[in-house]
Design a protein around this nucleic acid. Structure first.
Length: 785
RNA sequence: GCCGGUGUGGCGAAAUGGCAGACGCACAGGACUUAAAAUCCUGGGACCUUCAAAAGUCGUGUCGGUUUGAGUCCGACCACCGGCACCA
């Protein structure tokens, strides 16, 4: 694994607001701490590329792509040009995605934290630089970004040499350059970058245009028009046309100056020229030249940072690491042997960090110090350590020898066939269609993961990373953990706002279940709209599906008469805590009540009529297809249609109702099971026999003919065929009539029937028929002029 | 600012380029009831006529386009939601 200890500055400001902790309001200070990092950046490329092999929403994939933030460009070295300085031989390295604009680099900017700042600052600028750095250091990161509207910075007094044309350019520091990205230093090209432009304008720095826009015509049209195709990398800004008032007196049209792609101009030296080259080619040429002259090289940068993986808390997995000293007294670390795993946290009376800022585990002196003089690591892992692999542990939760057994892993997470496909696809890049890696019928990994978007860039990226490491080490069968992922939409409060305690709009499921039952609650959540959509909660909607379940109930059973019910209820009226005699009375009353509930008298063991079969099979078709597509809302409405129809049947065939219960079971399992049981009790032996493959075999609580073991109904398309069809007749696309024709009618017959329509005729009178479109089984449209 | 998503009745929504509003909520009228609740039946996009009905016109965020036909496809825009945000 890529555990890597790093000594460095860690900003302990995760929960900082204005320098105070979010909970408790304690002052927050930054201090250097030894922390563990996971080198997730080493997997940036794989994490990015393999997004193409999984079935996730585009928006989620895009979020991960943006988070990884791959940028292709070049690193370029600028020689420092002040011989007065003691480090005159040093170079400043910058990263740029637009090496082709190097001739337009008119100044440089270092982040205030850049390690060369103090060394290059000239004596006369020292005070101003120090003041700026102090000012920046006193601000939280949040304040720094909030104040970003106005550019600020200070000249260091030093200069550097632009390697392509030998120009002396000033070196500034400014907080718009981040220490943590790229090299912490930039070459500024104000003619082609909004931020550089703002800065140059404010501090009167020169602006030289080096790209002539080729595809953006029109003086001010840039932001309105679609930009030329982007390469997917992070280019310089392509919008923000500055005002004339802001524009320096160069006389150039600002719209053109900010066009993204074009042809290089003003880009030549005595030995080298980019002029006339389109941006893409100019990039290639200058990068090759820089590499040849040893002035720079092609480079790829990521926004993704290595992952700070230690916490100073008690509750977390302790690192299985000990610290030792070598002969010279230098500290080094070793992993515990496997025989010492798993490493459990020690018992503590006090879970707080020590007064000198050590993690809580440092309090466990007996645990901390080992007999051989080595000392345990006291940081603990964050909660991600569990969420990154729990799905693997679930496969083999009781395995004491491994995190997951080989057999269990390959059985659940992959098939041999799948694994081969993934691998052959990876190793053989010349394979003609990489699409064969995608969407194989036997899906590798977790087949379906339903989760919220809040996990888009943390959990879902971290888990993919861990899984890939395990894959590369040969512990798992697939390169990706979650094959298909669906983001369920957020359920908002009744006021259309996100539920939160502070808004007081939280709906507690327990309360809803108390009033309407778990079936109604579950059904409503599925009925309210598409799974992926955000939608507001509406309690009267629960009442609606509750009513539907009531209709289902009455479709199957005859309620006792009010008198019967009241008689039984009187005896049963006993709250909890009855004496045992009363309890017995209660039990017998409850039995009485149950006996009063009888199967609907209309339910008979008879053959279904064609109309009934049609209703049933239309429902089977819709529910089956919608379940596959996770369109639960429309599946439920199909069942409502069925019930509305079936409740009016004078005779209700047992076999039809049984199949309906199987459809209902995934949506409302409790009521479905209850009704199924009632049906079984009164079912005649004859209908039991007709159920294919159903024998009474006791397997614990359920028998093979109980609901969960019943085969899912198959719909028969032949039963859905209509004898006659209703065909709308349109004239010039407007509905004028609906005609009935035999289902077997050919186009000519339908056309003739449409032309004969009394209602359509007035719209045809005196017009020339240009064309008649007959859409088989759908409609007729008569185009007239 | 950038990226992604969503716009359809009073509300949640439905509709392989082919009858817009299925299904449900809320509402209105009726039945049952002493009454209410529950249940059952009926109605319903807007507008315009009409005693009533039929007919008609308009209608899926806005403007334009493609098409015999557009909620659906294309272009531009607007609004809202989510994510990222000085990432060179």
């Amino acid at each position: 694994m890529n555990w890597c200890p790093e000594l460095g500055t860690v900003l302990a400001n995760e929960e900082v607001i204005d320098g105070k902790s979010e909970v408790g309001g304690f002052p927050v200070v930054r201090k250097p701490m030894r922390q563990w990092m996971l080198r997730i950046t080493a997997y940036a490329e794989k994490l990015l590329a393999d997004l193409d092999t999984i079935d996730w929403s585009d928006s989620l994939k895009e979020m991960q792509r943006n988070w990884i933030g791959r940028s292709e460009g070049a690193e370029v070295d600028f020689q420092i040009a002040d011989c007065r300085l003691p480090i005159a031989d040093s170079k400043i390295r910058v990263f740029t995605t637009r090496p082709d604009t190097l001739f337009g680099a008119t100044y440089m900017v270092l982040s205030p934290e850049h390690k060369l700042v103090d060394q290059i600052t000239t004596p006369e600028q020292r005070e101003a630089i120090a003041r700026y750095k102090t000012q920046i250091a006193g601000k939280s990161d949040l304040e720094r970004t909030e104040l970003a509207k106005e550019k600020s910075g200070v000249f260091t007094g030093a200069h550097a040499i632009n390697p392509v044309n030998g120009e002396r350019i000033p070196i500034w520091i400014a907080d718009y350059v981040l220490a943590s990205y790229g090299t912490g230093a930039i070459m500024a090209v104000p003619a082609h970058d909004t931020r550089d432009f703002e800065f140059a304008t404010k501090f009167a720095l020169p602006i030289i245009e080096v790209v002539k826009p080729s595809e953006c015509d029109g003086a001010r049209a840039v932001p309105a028009r679609s930009a030329p195709v982007r390469s997917g990398t992070h280019e310089h800004s392509k919008n923000s046309v500055p005002n004339d008032a802001l524009r320096p007196g160069t006389g150039r049209a600002p719209a053109e100056a900010f066009c993204e792609l074009g042809v290089a101009i003003n880009s030549s030296s005595t030995e080298f020229s980019l002029n006339g080259l389109p941006t893409a080619e100019a990039k290639k040429k200058i990068t090759a030249w820089l590499e040849e002259k040893n002035l720079g090289k092609k480079s790829i940068n990521y926004k993704l940072r290595d992952w700070l993986f230690s916490r100073q808390r008690y509750w977390g997995e302790p690192f299985p690491i000990v610290w030792k000293k070598d002969a010279a007294g230098n500290l080094y670390h070793e992993a515990l042997p496997e025989s010492s795993l798993p490493l459990l946290p020690p018992s503590l009376e006090d879970y707080k960090p020590t007064t000198d800022g050590q993690p809580p585990l440092a309090r466990a002196k007996d645990w901390l110090n080992l007999p051989d003089g080595s000392v345990r690591e006291t940081n603990t892992m964050p909660q991600w350590a569990g969420s990154c692999w729990y799905y693997l542990r679930y496969l083999d939760a009781k395995n004491g020898g491994a995190f997951v057994g080989k057999d269990a892993e390959s059985y659940w997470m992959g098939t041999t066939g799948c694994k081969l496909k993934v691998e052959s696809c990876k190793s053989d890049s010349s394979a003609p269609q990489p699409a064969t890696c995608n969407l194989q019928p036997a899906t590798p990994g977790v087949d379906l993961y339903v989760g919220g978007t809040e996990h888009a860039v943390l959990h879902l990226l971290y888990a993919r990373f861990w899984h890939k490491v395990l894959f590369d080490l040969g512990h798992v069968s697939t390169a990706e953990p979650f094959f298909k992922l669906v983001n369920q939409g957020l359920i908002l409060g009744a006021d259309g706002q996100k539920m939160s305690k502070s808004r007081g709009n939280v709906v507690n499921p327990d309360d809803v279940i108390e009033e309407y039952g778990a079936d109604a609650f579950r059904l409503y959540e599925m009925f309210m709209g598409p799974l992926q959509d955000t939608k507001p909660w509406n309690t009267s909607g629960v009442a609606g599906v509750y009513k539907f379940l009531g209709r289902v109930w009455r479709l199957f059973v005859d309620e006792p008469s009010e008198t019967e019910f009241e008689q039984a209820e009187t005896t049963a009226d006993c709250s909890r805590g009855c004496e045992s005699a009363e309890s017995r009375a209660l039990t017998s009353a409850a039995t009485k009540l149950l006996n009063l509930i009888k199967l609907n008298a209309a339910i008979k063991d008879v053959a279904a009529t064609p109309a009934q079969l049609k209703t049933l099979h239309a429902c089977i078709k819709k529910v089956t297809e919608d379940l596959d597509g996770m369109r639960f809302n429309t599946a439920i409405s199909a069942m409502m249609v069925f019930v509305n129809d079936a409740i009016a049947w004078e005779t209700k065939p047992v076999a039809v109702l049984r199949e309906f219960l199987i459809l209902l079971a995934p949506f409302a399992p409790h009521i479905a099971e209850e009704l199924w049981e009632k049906m079984s009790k009164v079912q005649s032996p004859k209908s039991k026999v007709t159920d294919a493959g159903s024998t009474t075999l006791d397997i614990g609580h359920w028998t093979l003919d109980s609901l969960p073991y019943s085969p899912w109904p198959k719909f028969d398309p032949a039963l859905l065929v209509e004898d006659t069809l209703e065909i709308p007749v349109q004239v010039n696309g407007k509905l004028r009539d609906v005609i009935r024709v035999p289902a077997a009618a050919d186009n000519a017959t339908i056309e003739a029937a449409a032309l004969a329509s009394e209602k359509a005729k007035p719209y045809l009178a005196g017009k020339t028929i240009k064309k008649i479109i007959v859409v088989p089984k759908k409609l007729v449209n008569i185009a007239v002029a």
